[in-house]
């Protein structure tokens, strides 16, 4: 009972700050089109509109971009994480700091930085033109550019959990595997990878959930070549003034992401890989 009393302030805070807005969004998703109150008789027409329309394209892009982002981040971050945990020694904190510093600058500002770097007559192309006389098409407003922006923005969210995962592998288990005849590759596959899995899975989940909700990269670097689902939601809530439709889209996004995350968590029982079985 004392436990409940002590937890009560936090429960109230979470109820107001976390549960209430979510419930409001879920409530709105069942309201008639373009209505602004929560007291209308509930209807499924928003969901029907979504399933009859072409929102699946935006859903598809968001999920595809998120999956690709996670895949590229995994390939890029594992070697760096390995280096930070095992190779760089006294330089690891310096490099960690260099990866952290960009987080102090707003994501939008950094993306506009990339825009200035890649834009026609900008830092890269302007220099190439004036110094070498090379005139190239800008890569801005293409799909790979969106991916580049997303990978760039979410590096720390993959790198840090991964580094933690790699540093959790006791060095003696590596040595023992080697001593028992394993090749370097076998040590990696049989010991290092499975033992660093908790950090890797957390990195995957974190970056996937963030990337699926990304919007600025497609807007700024993609120039609306791609409309991710988050952009659709924003349009519904703003220009279109159709809150119920936006709410229904948001609920569907939460469902899709939630189901995927639960699926991954079930596949990789974090407790089991952490050794708490």
């Amino acid at each position: 009972m004392a436990g409940f009393r002590n937890a009560l302030p936090l429960i109230i805070f979470l109820a107001i700050g976390f549960a209430a807005p979510l419930l409001a969004v879920i409530g709105y998703s069942f309201m008639p089109e373009r209505s602004f109150g929560l007291l209308h008789p509930p209807t499924l027409e928003n969901y029907a509109a979504i399933f009859n329309g072409n929102s699946y394209i935006s859903f598809g892009w968001s999920l595809l971009l998120a999956v690709l982002t996670v895949a590229f981040l995994a390939l890029i971050c594992y070697p760096i994480a390995y280096g930070l945990a095992r190779v760089f020694g006294p330089w690891a904190p310096v490099i960690t700091l260099l990866f952290t510093i960009p987080l102090f600058v707003s994501e939008n500002v950094r993306l506009y930085g990339w825009l200035l770097f890649f834009i026609k007559n900008g830092v890269l192309l302007g220099t190439l033109k004036s110094v070498f006389g090379l005139e190239l098409e800008s890569w801005l407003f293409t799909r790979p550019m969106i991916l580049l922006g997303m990978v760039y923005v979410y590096v720390p969210f993959m790198l840090f959990p991964m580094t933690l995962g790699v540093s959790m592998v006791p060095n003696e288990t590596r040595e023992a595997a080697l001593d028992l005849g394993a090749t370097r590759w076998q040590v990696f596959r049989e010991v290092e990878l499975p033992l660093s899995m908790p950090g890797i899975v957390i990195g995957f989940l974190l970056t996937f959930v963030l990337a699926v909700g990304a919007i600025a990269e497609a807007k700024i670097l993609g120039g609306q070549t791609v409309i991710p689902i988050t952009h659709d939601i924003e349009i519904a809530f703003t220009y279109a003034q159709n809150w119920p439709l936006g709410a229904a889209l948001a609920v569907l996004l939460m469902l899709v992401v939630g189901i995927l995350v639960l699926f991954v968590l079930r596949r990789f029982d974090l407790d089991a890989v952490l050794g708490r079985r």
Binding site: P170, E172, E175, A176, A177, D179, L180, V191, L195
Partner: peptide, 27 residues
């Protein structure tokens, strides 16, 4: 070490915590 016909039992034992007893022995 992986090509020497010798083997070490470590102070920490260095068992593979994500594997069963059988999988450890069979490694």
């Amino acid at each position: 070490a992986n090509r020497r016909p010798t083997c070490m039992v470590f102070q920490s034992l260095a068992l593979f915590p994500h594997r069963t007893v059988g999988e450890n022995i069979e490694f």
